[in-house]
Design a protein around this nucleic acid. Structure first.
Length: 896
RNA sequence: GCCCGCUUGGCUCAGUGGUAGAGCACUCGCUUCACACGCGAGGGGUCAGAGGUUCGAAUCCUCUAGCGGGCACCA
């Protein structure tokens, strides 16, 4: 068989995905076991804007590892793929394209514009699915969904109508976050606070009847044109007699009252606050409490309105600010201006400063929904956050302080709000226009022009994608889903809302676990972002190092943030090559043998020590990987697999079995060794498959033997693929500590001799005789049984095992476990001084360890309070050190 | 303002009460018939600092410093 010396990831990446998909391996229907347990994941739908970034690749890798693993364990698995229409982002993206043609969306009109977005979506979405296929994700494409699909839109309208009928959705004229650039309202979560170096202006407002003035402090002087009161704290002695007085608002001549309100902090500024109910959320609340008028002086484009007066009307808010300050100065009413740092709200997407405005919008009351979420968490600890700290607390805290959700958006791209208005302004909320007409009793109705916040439809994702509101089989089978894998920045935006909507409409949690991944930072520790241009494109990494190597790197990220480190991908690329070459060796020497798990149960012939050892190691590895994955410890799983394959399988097992495997003569022994080797390799490939789907499939398909027989029973009859082979169990009965101890003794012996060779500068090709003394009978038997391997691995000319070591004075020696000792006679080669130094150094090392342990043991309280097994372990270790030290002393003494 | 996380060898990160780990980098030696994307052998850390709890602390508690993140209506 001809196999390339170096692994070419591209070839393997092209060979299998299409076949897996075509044969239905990703669909749950591939599982023929009616009693199979269920595992399902709803993908966090990527936005149809743009392409996939490293964060997607990270999450997709983890979800794919889990899905492939569970599938191999015989679960009926569904990983549901899909995309999000991403309202504002997508609309902005297409608007930007239009701008290049010198057009705005208004030139096209709503219908044509939306059509154009759909075209754009088809193109961009196609790119994304292509990229996902490259990642190797085992999602069921036959079920792919888009948040604006007809069935998902139906779910959105159904939810809206039901919530409206229950009085949880309402329309109201309230103060909201307005983006003057995007011309839409935003929810609190789409607004970002930024520190801003600004000024605090102290303005004097004169009393109407009297000499006094009241000074207020503000960061936004231009809003004074809309002031309808000044508020002070009711307990503030300084202003007590002013409460109820009337002030003359400068520049306008308007009479405004001084009111008392607990909100006012007497310590801040002057202790008197100007109240602008139409342009500040706090003032809005105060205005409601004191029945103050709302005077709108800033419009939706952040320009001053006619209400601001003829001098200001039409001015930009910042120009107006300067002018107001100037006027106050002229009037001698500007007390002072001080530097002041405060935080400013900006639009998350376009960075424009948000203008708080009073606007007619749709809102969702969150009180009862919030309680559903909190009850689930407090009563059932669901969802279970991994890691629990800090996410559970952060999530609970946010829920507790939840405010109503502004769900309408002044956009064209999205789910149009299912509300209609009659000529006389009556609101009809219905599932369709027909239903609305029927309810209204007239065809003369017009639909609300706004669309819903993108996150409204995302909130329904775990059940809308499964067919809700229909009583679909998928819904019964796959809801609730098993786990949600996501980044931490959408816990509020998305996770919490899915929980609330799931509880409300399904009466059950949308997922059991929430695994929150870390973030991949650039090499300087900065977040990757488009604006900073510091992102690393996953496709480029795939091209350079292969998908499997990249997946291993990403799976190693875990739940804490990690800087991108290409060296690490390179080391996993090397690992892939190692796997390739190990398999290459197995396959080049496979004639006459096949993969045969039954041949390794020891029933037909007793197994060699190294066979029993690798079986034990393999099962321990499987057990540990399973335990790691159960806790989403991907990093731990990768480490376990890496060291099993490289250290145990390649460095030791292949080398120990090599002499039998490459024997020139065909013999039953050779067949047996080859069978064992192939069988272990096959098991190792299965262990690796969820992490490295391409290389494992590529190699698995080359293995000799009946591959169909290797499939998990749930997939009997399917086209053979490693995807459907059963995941190694990690059988405790096959983990044998005694065998591992024995093998370890051999490994240690070999290592010590290699150390001697290296330190004594013995040429690698130069054979040396080896004399082993082992007073312990069992240990002696182990060495005797493995003289061939030992001889081969240390390049020994001869190996002599005896009870009591006898060796020439001119030998290099090493002390082993159980009182055993090894000597390498080196007539003429041993520099006695050098050997003395070498042994003395070893003795010192042991001495240092021993004195530490002695000190610990000497503490009477240690023996008293520490658990007995700890004390025993230390005593045993000290005894071992003593024995070794005594032997070393003797050896050094013999040097003369 | 409140809350949280991180600080471990040159670099990137594991470890979370019982003698400090990995990969990369480094040193020495190897074209050993799977692999130089490799093989063998090594060197290197008082686990940010101080105090405390404990028989025992990188690991638990307190404080300090540096870095990062989240939340908040301070005009």
């Amino acid at each position: 068989m001809e196999i390339a010396k170096q692994y070419d990831p591209k070839q393997a990446e092209q060979n299998h995905y299409e076949r897996w998909e075509r044969q239905g391996c990703f669909a749950p229907e591939i599982n023929r076991d009616e009693n199979a347990p269920v595992f399902s994941i709803a993908i966090p739908p990527p936005n149809v804007t743009g392409s996939l970034h490293m964060g997607h690749a990270l999450q997709h890798t983890m979800m794919d590892v889990l899905t492939r693993y569970k599938r191999m364990c015989g679960y009926r698995t569904l990983w549901m793929p899909g995309m999000d229409h991403a309202g504002i982002s997508t609309q902005l993206m297409v608007s930007r394209e239009l701008k290049k043609e010198g057009l705005t969306r208004h030139d096209l009109g709503r219908e044509k514009f939306v059509e154009r977005v759909w075209n754009w979506k088809a193109e961009s979405g196609g790119q994304i699915t292509k990229q996902m296929r490259r990642e190797g994700v085992s999602v069921d494409w036959s079920r792919e969904k888009f948040t604006m699909d007809e069935d998902l839109s139906r779910a959105v309208r159904e939810v809206f109508v039901r919530l409206y009928d229950e009085g949880m959705i309402y329309r109201g004229n309230r103060i909201v976050n307005w983006c003057p650039n995007d011309q839409t309202v935003l929810s609190d979560l789409e607004v970002q606070k930024e520190p801003q170096a600004g000024k605090l202006y102290y303005l004097r407002y004169p009393e109407k009847n009297g000499e006094r003035t009241l000074t207020v402090a503000t960061t936004r002087p231009e809003t004074m044109l809309g002031d309808t009161a000044v508020a002070v704290n009711p307990n503030d002695e300084r202003y007590r007699d002013l409460v109820g007085a009337t002030l003359l608002l400068p520049l306008t001549g308007r009479e405004i009252p001084v009111v008392a309100d607990d909100f006012v902090d007497p310590e801040f500024g002057t202790g008197a606050v100007k109240v602008t109910p139409a342009h500040d959320p706090n003032d809005y609340d105060m205005g409601v409490r004191h029945s103050l008028a709302q005077i709108v002086v800033i419009d939706s484009h952040a320009k001053m309105t006619a209400e601001a007066g003829p001098e200001f009307a039409g001015l930009d808010r910042y120009k107006a600010r300067a002018k107001v300050v100037e006027k106050f100065e002229e009037l001698g009413l500007l007390e002072k201006v001080v530097d002041y740092e405060f935080s400013i709200s900006k639009c998350e997407r376009c960075r424009t400063v948000i203008e708080p405005l009073i606007s007619m919008q749709w809102f969702l009351r969150m009180d009862t929904l919030r309680d559903l979420g909190l009850e689930l968490l407090e009563g059932f600890r669901k969802p279970r956050f991994v890691p629990e700290v800090p996410y559970e607390k952060v999530y609970a805290n946010w829920l507790e302080n939840l405010r109503d959700w502004t769900i309408s958006r002044q956009l064209w791209w999205g789910h149009q709000i299912p509300a209609w208005y009659t000529a006389d302004g009556e609101i009809i909320v219905a599932r369709s226009e027909e239903e609305a007409r029927a309810k209204a009793g007239t065809a003369e109705i017009t639909q609300d022009q706004d669309v819903l916040d993108t996150w409204f439809s995302s909130a329904l994702w775990p059940f809308s994608t499964l067919g809700w509101p229909a009583e679909a089989t998928d819904l019964k089978t796959f809801y609730p889903t098993s786990v949600l894998v996501t980044a931490r920045d959408i816990i509020f935006l998305w996770v919490s809302r899915m929980v609330m909507m799931g509880m409300k409409f399904m009466g059950d949690r949308p997922f059991d676990d929430v695994f929150v991944t870390g973030t991949i930072l650039d090499k300087h520790g900065q977040r990757m972002s488009k604006t900073k241009m510091n992102g690393v494109d996953p496709l480029e990494v795939f091209d350079k190092f292969g998908v499997d190597a990249t997946r291993l790197t990403l799976a190693s990220v875990g739940s804490s943030d990690t800087r991108w480190n290409e060296k690490q991908v390179e080391s996993y690329r090397n690992f892939a090559n190692k796997i390739w070459n190990a398999a290459r060796f197995c396959l080049m020497n496979s004639e006459g043998a096949i993969v045969n798990p039954a041949a390794m149960n020891g029933a037909t012939a007793p197994l060699a020590l190294h066979d029993r050892w690798i079986i034990s190691r393999l099962n321990k590895t499987a057990r540990d990987v399973r335990a790691s994955l159960a806790e989403y410890q991907f990093h731990e799983a990768v480490q376990t697999l890496y060291h099993f394959f490289w250290d145990d399988f390649c460095d030791w097992y292949i080398e120990l079995t090599k002499s039998d495997v490459i024997a020139e003569e065909a013999s039953p022994k050779r067949v047996e060794a080859r069978t064992h080797l192939l069988t272990i390799l096959e098991q190792a490939l299965r262990l690796l498959h969820p992490f490295m789907p391409y290389i494992t499939e590529e190699l698995w398909q080359m293995l000799p033997g009946d591959r169909a027989a290797l499939l998990h029973y749930a997939y009997r009859g399917a086209e053979p693929t490693i995807m459907l082979a059963s995941y190694p169990k990690g059988d405790d009965a096959l983990i044998d500590e005694a065998v591992e101890w024995e093998m370890q003794a051999v490994i240690d012996l070999i290592s010590r001799v290699r150390n001697i060779r290296s330190e004594m500068n013995i040429k690698p090709g130069e054979p040396v005789p080896l004399r082993i003394g082992a007073p312990d009978e069992k240990l002696r038997a182990v060495f005797l049984a493995n003289t061939n391997q030992i001889s081969r691995l240390v390049r020994a000319s001869e190996v002599t095992v005896m009870e009591k070591l006898e060796a020439p004075r001119a030998s290099a020696r090493a002390v082993l476990v159980g009182g055993a000792e090894v000597a390498v006679p080196l007539e003429g080669l041993v520099d006695f001084e050098q050997e003395r130094a070498r042994l003395t150094k070893e003795k010192e090392k042991l001495g240092a360890e021993s004195s530490k342990l002695e000190a610990q043991l000497a503490n009477p309280q240690f023996a008293e309070r520490a658990p007995a097994e700890k004390v025993d372990a230390i005593r045993a270790r000290i005894a071992d050190i003593e024995q070794r030290t005594a032997q070393l002393d003797q050896t050094i003494g013999n040097l003369g």
